[in-house]
Nucleic acid binder design. Structure first.
Length: 574
DNA sequence: CTGGGGATGGGGCCC
DNA sequence: TGGGCCCCATCCCCA
């Protein structure tokens, strides 16, 4: 007995889930676009993806091999088995770009389709490109190009085409054009002087209009040595302007133009559909090849670059992450440490959530405090509530889910009532076990490192006192900022992982780590950092300077934090 | 195997 | 708003 449409239905569901970001557990960064997807699906489609998603939740694809427009088609194909190509594009180019991408990503079926298509249309498969290398050589190539650890920002080999620049792309319009699973992460005005090398067109001149969905310019910082350091760091940055990449780049201008709101799998006018008839044996075979994917090359430093999936912004364990990207809303981790975190995606802010999301984010600038000025009940609940739009099957009638405990409720009222009980408890937990304890630790640490850090709290010049913890500050703004730390609200969500932050700056900084934006480069070794301070710290490695001295044993350290950890050794009972 | 040190990443917080 | 500095966590290397 067999359900005739089972596979189809399943795929359809998965594709719809992808469109909503539901249960998506991996983000693929292609140039300046982000795509959400399911690891399982990717892994089942390509041995290359399989190797990538195994260890990483964030994947940067080589922009020489695939661009956002093409990748969207690829993703559509993976989820539908259909190849949708807009007929008004230069379809030969499109297929040739697709072929390149498919080869790169080891989507053999797709590559075969493209080849077939190109053959049929009479064109050469790829001008100047020999037949696609076999899987093994391809693997090697992929390994070289493996860019999960490559900063997405600085190396960008896509000069924006004129059409990119010409197109007016105001935020809203852009947003309209982007599908749910794609967020634009343009970095407007990065090195706008173009001093970054000729081929470096930078992420978005198109993005100049677009600081799009994230609404952030994460790359503001113009490092002293971006150009050189980037070149030094990116083995393929100045090389391999391969015919493939050239052919790919020609389609770049279309990257944001096609009707991304069209659900994949739904035929649209003017597009033709190629469908994969059945799951191809060939692909199964290739995926079972003993060679397997090349091990990801992880130097010591490289190995760290992808840690976010693991450390999950230090709040989410990997398992949490698996449950975290739900319909664009991150479900909070269970562990107490971050239980106060709540998540929401910008996508969800508007819509009909009926919650206070917009309230928080909207006011976050000036007076997110205002929310706290009120009763707090409602806006606490905003931290916990989300509605599972369109996913009734998974949650039955209980569309309103309490994120910390996972209980579902049929109405927002019931959920709110339930959430209240959480807030009380967690507030105390937070204050007892979290903030305050930590501050004691900090003071202790300050004592320990007293030889080094002055940072004392002289109260004379600090007339503004916190009513909660009695800390005092020089100015009211700082006090206000500090007081927020006593609240549960975290008004600044990361649009990629959904983690919430108390301060916008912290969130912006956090985003940089997602996107691999490391503007601060060491001139000595080319290593890059997300923060200036890190670079300063790092430079001592080269200079040998060890300004931090242990008063007990005379040991010297390059970093204060290491001195502190060393001092603990002196003071700990063991 | 273990502990200490070097180095790095990420978040919180103050200025 | 960004810089700077604090913290913790973690990895790697080495004795």
């Amino acid at each position: 007995m067999e359900l005739p449409n089972h596979a189809k239905q399943l795929l359809l569901q998965l594709n719809q889930q992808r469109a909503k970001g539901f249960l998506c557990d991996v983000i693929i960064v292609v140039e300046n676009a982000l795509f959400r997807a399911h690891k399982n699906i990717l892994a089942a489609s390509s041995i290359y993806f399989k190797s990538l998603v195994l260890h990483d939740n964030l994947i940067n694809l080589d922009t020489e091999m695939v661009n956002p427009s093409v990748f969207r088609q690829v993703l559509d194909f993976i989820y539908t088995g259909k190849l949708l190509s807009s007929s008004d594009q230069s379809s030969e180019r499109n297929f040739s770009a697709l072929l390149t991408a498919a080869s790169y990503l080891q989507l053999h079926d797709l590559a075969a389709l493209c080849r077939k298509k190109l053959k049929r249309s009479g064109g050469k498969a790829l001008p100047g490109k020999p037949s696609t290398p076999g899987p093994l050589s391809r693997l090697r190539l992929n390994n070289q190009r493996l860019s999960t650890s490559t900063p997405a920002g600085p190396k960008n080999h896509y000069p924006p085409t004129p059409s990119d620049a010409d197109q007016p792309q105001p935020d809203e319009g852009l947003r309209d054009k982007l599908s749910d699973d794609e967020m634009f992460v343009g970095s407007s005005g990065r090195n706008g002087n173009g001093g970054n090398g000729s081929s470096n067109g930078n992420l978005s001149s198109g993005g100049s209009a677009g600081e799009p969905d994230l609404g952030l310019d994460l790359s503001k910082k113009s490092p002293p040595s971006v150009g050189t350091a980037t070149d030094a760091l990116s083995p393929h940055s100045n090389s391999q302007e391969s015919p493939q990449s050239a052919s790919v780049s020609t389609t770049n201008s279309a990257s944001l133009d096609d009707s991304s709101t069209t659900l994949p799998g739904v035929d649209t006018c003017g597009s033709e559909t190629m469908e994969l008839n059945s799951s191809s044996k060939a692909s199964e075979e290739t995926q079972n090849q003993p060679d397997g994917p090349p091990p990801q090359k992880k130097s010591r430093q490289g190995a760290r670059k992808n840690e976010w999936p693991k450390k999950e912004a230090s709040g989410l364990k990997s398992e949490d992450h698996d449950r975290s990207l739900v319909n664009g809303v991150i479900v909070g981790p269970k562990d107490g440490r971050s239980s106060d975190q709540s998540f929401q995606c910008k996508d969800e802010e508007e819509g009909e959530n009926g919650q206070d999301h917009t309230d928080e984010s909207g006011q976050s600038d000036g007076e997110s405090a205002g929310g706290g000025g009120g009763t707090g009940g409602g806006h606490h609940s905003a931290n916990y509530v989300y509605r599972q739009e369109g996913f009734e099957p998974a949650f039955g009638d209980n569309l309103y889910v309490c994120i910390p405990c996972g209980k579902g409720f049929p109405s927002s009222e019931q959920l709110n009532a339930h959430v209240e009980t959480h807030n009380e408890d967690e507030l105390y937990i937070k204050e007892e076990g979290g903030t305050f304890v930590k501050e004691e630790d900090e003071e202790e640490a300050e004592d320990l490192s007293a030889p080094v850090g002055p940072s004392s709290f002289g109260s004379e010049t600090r007339p503004f006192k916190c009513t909660v913890c009695s800390k005092s500050y020089k100015d009211p703004a700082t006090l206000r900022q500090h007081e927020k730390s006593h609240w549960l609200t975290r008004p600044f969500p990361c649009n990629i992982c959904g983690k919430m932050f108390t301060q916008r700056g912290t969130m912006t900084r956090h985003m940089r780590s997602h996107l691999g934006l490391k503007p601060f480069a060491c001139e000595e070794c080319g290593m890059r950092f997300t923060r200036q301070y890190r670079l300063t710290e790092h430079m001592r490695v080269h200079s040998g300077e060890k300004p931090y001295e242990c008063q007990l044993c005379g040991g010297k350290f390059t970093q204060q934090r290491n001195l502190i950890s060393h001092l603990r050794m002196h003071t700990s009972p063991t």
